[in-house]
Amino acid sequence: MKAKKILAIMLISGLISCNQSSNENASQPALEENTAQMGGQEAVVDDESQKDVVKIAVGSPDHTTLVSALKQAEYVNDLSNAGPFTVFAPTNEAFNKIPKETWMT
């Protein structure tokens, strides 16, 4: 009887270890290899739609300071959303009139 009990335990433990190993085989490599690099809406490729605020600003040589400030403040994703947004967009020239000390504080 004792031997039979041991066998029964072996069977049950076999069941558990069996499940574990098959789970590992199935899912783990899939997750690591396949997870896509995900950007926000600013990363959407779209040449048909009207340009949003961010795309207009990025394309403008007069707003490079604004764009880098938006990037630094991490507003690019927000402003690429559905809006509607009204953005007062100072030109580089306008930014240049701000004293440097103000920038630093």
Partner: peptide
């Protein structure tokens, strides 16, 4: 089959 999940899995964003 054992690798079924891997074969039908399309990661988020893919």
């Amino acid at each position: 089959s054992g690798d079924a999940a891997f074969k039908s899995y399309v990661a988020p964003g893919k």
